[in-house]
Write a protein that binds this DNA or RNA. Structure first.
Lengths: 215, 215, 215, 215
DNA sequence: CATGAATGAGTCTTCATTCAT
DNA sequence: CATGAATGAAGACTCATTCAT
């Protein structure tokens, strides 16, 4: 009758952490990167000190959100792999990732600032990278991908759409879809032959490393 | 006893304004939006007070830069019109505008914050809009433009690339070209038939207004 | 069902108190007065709450250390009394007390802040005072003490040397001895006549109370 | 009629700087090192920002006070040199420096924290050192100084007395004199032969550098 | 008009102390 | 009793903006 209870002490701590992360996610998503940790604390219904207990500083909090976001993206990519064709899988993942990013102002900035990323985030990022690579490779095997486009380019294009979303959210919330579709079509057209697109391979990046951090 | 020839004081004022705008452009381009107005003043070789005499506040200064940027873009568009074909003109303008944006960190943010734009900027923006429309229309007349794409979409796509440029500038300065070309090709392929692209018209924006402010 | 033999819980309490005092002594000695009570708790292997259970606040903890220090000093003075001559006893005690103080950064500050001293500390202090008085009196009876110097002055001179030790510890750990000896010689020369010293009695303190708290 | 005016603009700036330094001196002297810069600003009748305009940070302010203090000490030493005998000069300087230090809580701490001293402070300190050396050498030439005592030891003994003063100021403001005289007599007796004192040379410091920063 | 000194609200962060588990 | 999570009052410092000279 005792092996089930575990350590009760952490109960509220866990709850508060969740409250903080939720509040932070919401606030950052709504108002961008210049929210105060006081704001976060207040929105979470806790004191500032509590926020600082969980996250050494603002960047760490951002890093925490980032890790959560990576998890969602990994899920998304894995679901995409369940699609019947590689083409559908890639399009599905790209549009899904854009959607996610579009609903969350400041996350991509977080990616940048949280540079000295936490262990957890780094691992998730790596894992995400591998799954996304698989998605892209599968579509490429079907001849459905713009020549030269690789898994490394995925973060760049989603982040690109994210920036549009940030800019147009207030006036025209869904406007990013217009450009999201443009880009997704450019990377992986919905159907039909690829010849015309494939005519000019993308210019190679100067280095082989990922151009921007995944988002 | 004072209405003689011209106004001598205006001369300094004009020169100072130019110094301030130059310094601000350089600093904002290099270091992004968090430069102090003290930094700007110092780089311009004037006092902070002088900056505030010319521009009511920071956003107004940003607006001033924006106006200057519009001028450059207008020039660019007019030069593009000199190209032999509409297709070449559009591609030339798009890539040029991206180049400009890529060399200037924080300008697109400026666009957002300088919302209550100055008279001057508003007029230039309008003028830019007309010329760009002409460029796009000419290319469309040749059947060289993705169905549904209009002059209103141009700022969005250049701003999109700008955000990539901001994110990748430090590690891989030219990386944005990879995505710039992807997008330009999607909007207006370098040659060949357009059928596959034209198959799916872009989703219409919810409103007819410009989705994002021009950049 | 609980009034059996002794109080078992007290055992832990006593052990914890000792752990806390030890950890605090070490930390304060090493790093001075700005150690966190979290640091103390961690070093002691207990929670902060436990520290607060034993000591109402930080000053009380400092007071606790003080009491421990008094005990050591009492021992030292009693050992000194075992010396063959009063002169040797006084010199021995003074140098020993300086040594103790020199090895312990921040203790003298503790003395100040822990002003509303605990019962325990006050009693020990009183006891220390009596023994030290005895040491001084014995040396004075031998004509070996600077005219006007009393037991009340002892804490002042050791604290004085302590401050030098605090300042020079990092660069030159033993430097305080140079001044310690200067002062001990001034109070009680190692041998020879005292005439030259005794020529000018020390100026009387304005009040008869102890000038500084003992250390 | 114009070469006399100089630059009027600095007038209030200079006045404010003086207000700040005065307020800081007073507050630090009274309450020690933990005064807020807000307190200083308020006492000076200016805003915090003004304090930060003059002094990059708290340590810089402390450093500024330190420099002023060095100046006073240099003056004191030079006046002391005017005394008829070396003995009188040394005693005069030592007691004067102690007096100065005793009237100023926290200055010696300032010395420590302002370690990365300003150019100005470093130069004054050097200059002070040379004059004090001269004072000590002159007394030594008269055979009036405890064997082994040098100019390098002067800061240590004044700082030592300063610490007593800090501790006893509240209860017995002049109490430090009792110990100041004890130490001065030990270093340089008011008259009479020195033989007994000179019998035991001070233990040499481990290094030849100054044991503590001058105060 | 130009200057740069002054302002002070606002930001991040720390830490002594309290209290629910 | 022990624990460590939570609290929030400060403190150091920044910077957009105002205003006396």
């Amino acid at each position: 009758m005792s092996t089930t209870t575990a350590r009760p002490l952490r109960a509220d701590a866990v709850r508060n952490r969740a409250l903080i992360v939720d509040a932070a996610r919401r606030l950052f998503a709504e108002r961008g990167l210049d929210v105060t940790l006081h704001d976060v604390a207040e929105a979470a219904g806790v004191g500032v000190g509590t926020v600082y207990r969980r996250f050494p500083d603002k960047d760490a909090l951002l890093g925490g959100l980032l890790a959560a976001k990576y998890e969602t993206l990994v899920d998304l990519a894995e679901q995409a792999l369940a699609e019947p064709t590689g083409r559908q899988a890639l399009r599905s993942y790209l549009l899904g990732a854009m959607e996610l990013r579009a609903s969350d102002r400041a996350l991509s900035t977080a990616v940048l600032r949280a540079a000295p990323q936490t262990q957890e985030a780094a691992e998730l990022r790596e894992r995400l990278h591998r799954v996304v690579e698989e998605v892209v490779d599968r579509a490429r095997a079907e001849g459905a991908v713009r020549r030269g486009f690789t898994g490394e380019d995925v973060p760049a294009v989603t982040s690109m759409i994210g920036s549009i979303a940030d800019r147009s959210r207030d006036e025209l919330p869904g406007a990013w879809r217009r450009y999201g579709l443009l880009v997704v079509d450019a990377v992986c057209p919905p159907d039909g032959p690829l010849e015309p697109l494939a005519g000019s391979p993308l210019p190679a990046p100067t280095a082989t490393s990922c151009v921007v951090s995944p988002s």
